[in-house]
Design a protein around this nucleic acid. Sequence first.
DNA 1: CTGAAAGCGCTTACAG
DNA 2: CTGAAAGCGCTTACAG
Lengths: 348, 348
Amino acid sequence: MKSEDIARLAGVSRSTVSRVINNYSNVPEETRRKVMKVIEKYNYSPNSSARALAGKRTDTIGLFIVSIAERNSATRVYQNNYFSPFIEAVIDTANARGVYVLVHSIFSVRDYAKIKQAFIERRMDAGIIVGTEKNIGVIAEVAAMGYPLVIIDYSPEDIMQLVGKGRIAVINSTDDKGTREMIEYLLGSGHKDIGILAGRDNTYSGRVRYETYRETLIKNGIEPRAEWDLKGEFIKKIAEQAVTRLIKTGNLPTALFCCNDDMAISAMDVLLRENIKVPDDISIAGFDDIMPASLVKPALTTVHVPIYDIARKAVELVLEMIGDTAGNISAYTMETKLVIRESCKKTG
Amino acid sequence: MKSEDIARLAGVSRSTVSRVINNYSNVPEETRRKVMKVIEKYNYSPNSSARALAGKRTDTIGLFIVSIAERNSATRVYQNNYFSPFIEAVIDTANARGVYVLVHSIFSVRDYAKIKQAFIERRMDAGIIVGTEKNIGVIAEVAAMGYPLVIIDYSPEDIMQLVGKGRIAVINSTDDKGTREMIEYLLGSGHKDIGILAGRDNTYSGRVRYETYRETLIKNGIEPRAEWDLKGEFIKKIAEQAVTRLIKTGNLPTALFCCNDDMAISAMDVLLRENIKVPDDISIAGFDDIMPASLVKPALTTVHVPIYDIARKAVELVLEMIGDTAGNISAYTMETKLVIRESCKKTG
DNA sequence: CTGAAAGCGCTTACAG
DNA sequence: CTGAAAGCGCTTACAG
């Protein structure tokens, strides 16, 4: 069934069918009804490829999930508690607005070209990029092609500087405020020896959380100690190794600020295995508030990142930008919140 | 950049460019190289809409996630530990084969029409349907349109009977074997009073797990008791209510077989709150082996369902079927495995 | 208000 | 081996 069939059945031309479908204002009510009746009777819907080729939107957005460091992990999918809710929220929000979502995995820097590829092939009207790595070159190219892009977790300043032109929105959470509140909470609980299990420093949130940790300690008269400055890269396995090494030194801080929950949970596993009690022997703090954070024993004290809201905002922004050819580069920040559970306690 | 531009630049016709791109055999090596050079230089890729309209594949598959009972839950996304790994595995597998994935949420029976809609609009070459509800009518219609479909968790017999023609594969896990092994494990641990927290009975796995539970007890000379036959519908909240009511009766079984892990974890939460110890006062068994199953305390004894393998198999089957217009209705069963952790113990 | 016609960017018989 | 032409199913100026 194509528009020509509908036209014939309704006794009008394809032009009129098209006008009805696209809600043109200059179609008399009676004509519209007559055509609609046939359309509904046959459950007709235009071929999306033909529509797109003729200049309409694809009504599809791309969601690109970048997790470069994890490409070789067969169990990756079971581990990633940050992306899963994000993906689902994007899909639900977009679908509710009648927009399709093409989800794509990016596992290597080389893979990043696939983002551009999808736009070259004109498969989507816009894109959302989330993940552990950003290739600003590809982002700039896609933006230059005229496609709106929403980037999650990226330095707004860097975007402004590095992307010449195009419609781009970046969404972050208040990683600085969240980190500050957590460190001050630990300080307020009597901790002075606070270590960090840091995230990836080629990530905006990773850098902000790390730097804010240091600044907050220094502002409170405490010099961060190099031996408690662990690199976890936001990855469970690397975090485990770092914590294992720390334990071997025999010199533990009284609290460890982990830059995401995945690493915090890994740290707790290792400590448990080594018979070091959380929070009695060491307090563990996380970041993100992913679902397992409240399930784990002891339940994780962490900073809530509104993943669902970020995802929803991303879809809203991207749809707005599709509709508005003028738009330029913009930045949004979503509120984090300290969540106190059981994994940290007073000391001293 | 379009094929005409490439043609001009390479000094050939659009036909030849197309032949090179589609790997036709009758293009001399030299011509191919000449054209490829221009294609690579300009990073050209054909417009997917134009290709599809001209009769090529869309190179896109649809993944439809049906979770009807959960439509109104804002936190749904954080809860669904079964779909998340499935979605990611489908995407990863498809992407690795150069195929795009359009993921769509279905929240109501009315929504089910969206599946057909996507095919009417010719947005994809085939579909995978997973979730808590199946609309066999829509499935039959899409199959009749000639599109291959992979259905997860559905009665093969029902498919054979209800769908007249078309290419359909259904994938299940060995829910019967898994249930039997779990119940026999509990019996072997001395349990005679074994209750069930059942799943949705409009689900194939829900029915099989329920029936196998009853059969296994009866075969072992035990009559299933109505007061320990709880309906949980595979949903956390409903499971909580059922367990709460059970506790109020003061008449607990020594073991409770929960038809999925989500419900088992909910049951443990309620029991913990009521100061009933797992596994000392009651053994709790789950099904699925979702990620939190091993995180929770006590770690959940459950039946492992190979979600990742099922997802991968689904993609393989769907791609095979796209290539093979002959194919017919087929059924596959993936192996489950008993996973003994801490939530069940010997009794009597 | 409405239809005929051109055009979107491909692919593929067809003819040579 | 290769090009000119038709056709895929729409949308949208254009003309009336």
